[in-house]
Design a binder for these strands. Structure first.
Lengths: 275, 275
DNA sequence: TATACTAATGACTGATAAGTCAATTGTCAA
DNA sequence: TTGACAATTGACTTATCAGTCATTAGTATA
């Protein structure tokens, strides 16, 4: 649906500038060059539009993070991780601004949605910490998680307020150095394992097979042709009745991983098959 | 004015929960147990109320930070600094939540107001860095500033989301350790002096003598009696026509420093006399 | 007690916003 | 060309909110 994408992009521009509340549906439709009614053909409400924007971009960035953490070489891992974040930031500046600035002014449901992605990010970062430092950081692992999360958006405001040129390589290097320095030297963690678990008592639940099949159906509708469509159809069949080897499944997921709109379903399938 | 204080406190509770935009004046007045008209006797508009809340608390915390940075022993400085921040956070949780979450959804004037305090905080932190590390950190000074700013609100969400008991001593110790680790080990700064100056081209201007006198007049109106009132009257006289030694002035400022509502004027006077 | 003054009220106004739906426009097969 | 169906429009409805002001309640003074 091209119209949906257009609205989401144009709306993001206004949301980034003015915030969710201060941006009216009227303004959005004018900015899109469509009528008010037309917007309500694509989205049932302003909240659904906001929710779609959040899902669209957060699922992308989450899937990318996860792929990097499970596929990058150990030496490049941290560097790739930070680069990916700021690369996304740079490519989707409007949306990134929203995610940085507007945790507030969301309703309860949307806040939960953000919390969901936040917990996935934390899981991914913890996996990265394990890969990077292993049991060396056992006692400071959760504190290190908080440090990395803050380092991630440390220079965010530099992006938010300015259009000056920024060297992504120096940026990522600088953050890699800081992360390593902290990981190797902290002795007084503030966030302990117990504390972390207390803070995250509301666990993220994994998707059921049925929900996954439903999402695959949705994706199939969006994709017209080619190898990607066939891969998804095969993956769906295999979910309903297992008949392919795990190697084939992995290959099929790899086929769709980089296809626009498939990043998220690829991530969820990887989780499902524990790849 | 007691009514003003009541409204500011009650409004802060609602703003923290729902945000500025989502909180109506009606809600605020109901929460206060007063009528809508009554609120408009104390504040000319909703924006003026928000602005007053920002000024009231930001001036306090700024003044306290400044006092610590210029008066604490070098060994306790960092520790005191972080403690003060989380102490304020704990004491004024509602307001702190607003400052952490709601940079957006402010109008241009209020954003400028926040930027003003932010720049004062940066100045104060830079002074602290100079005192602590001197020229050892010459090349990474501004990068370190950004690190400290992020460390400050690193555990903020732990406060925001939970009511669990937090040990302020461990908290401050943990941050002191991290700061020292970073200060002593960074070699790849991302924010350089040039970059910092580019980002802060809009300089904060100091208050003129006339503005200071005007502010002193305002303060005099609020304070009924006692040593504090007399000290302020003397300070005002000395501003209009210098006749006291700098030692006496310093003592007078010290007299009012901890008196509620005088923190800010004390800070401004210290700046003015370069004490 | 009467009078003058201040503090407080809340119904009202005008503005703006989300969401609806009858009417219009566009498209395509027969 | 026509008629059936789908896509699109924007004036309209309903709701909410900031801010006003004529009226009332409260208080201090003569």
């Amino acid at each position: 649906m091209v119209k949906k994408q257009l609205i989401m992009e144009k709306a993001s521009e206004l949301f980034a500038k003015q915030g969710f509340k201060a941006t009216s549906v009227q303004q959005i439709t004018e900015h899109c060059g469509i009528s008010k009614g037309a917007l309500y053909l694509s989205f049932n409400s302003k909240d659904e539009l906001i929710s779609s924007i959040i899902d669209h971009y957060m699922s992308q960035v989450t899937a990318n993070f996860d792929y990097i953490v499970s596929h990058s070489d150990k030496e490049d891992l941290l560097y790739d991780f930070y680069r990916e974040y700021y690369h996304f930031f740079n490519k989707h500046a409007n949306i990134a601004k929203i995610f940085i600035k507007e945790t507030q002014s969301l309703n309860e449901e949307l806040i939960d949605r953000m919390r969901y992605y936040n917990q996935l990010h934390e899981k991914i970062i913890l996996t990265m910490i394990d890969r990077l430092y292993g049991k060396k950081v056992r006692d400071v692992k959760y504190d290190l998680l908080y440090c990395i999360k803050k380092l991630l958006n440390m220079y965010a405001e530099v992006f938010l307020l300015n259009d000056i040129y920024l060297d992504f390589n120096v940026l990522a290097q600088s953050l890699v150095e800081k992360t390593n320095i902290i990981a190797e030297n902290i002795t007084i963690p503030f966030i302990t394992k117990q504390q972390y678990e207390l803070l995250n008592f509301k666990k993220v639940k994994d998707l059921s097979k049925e929900e996954l099949i439903h999402l695959l159906d949705e994706t199939i509708k969006e994709i017209e042709s080619g190898l990607e469509r066939e891969s998804i159809l095969l993956l769906k069949e295999n979910l309903m009745e297992t008949n392919l080897s795990i190697a084939i499944v992995k290959g099929l997921i790899e086929n769709i991983r980089n296809y626009p709109g498939c990043e998220w379903i690829a991530y969820l399938l990887r989780k499902y098959y524990e790849l």
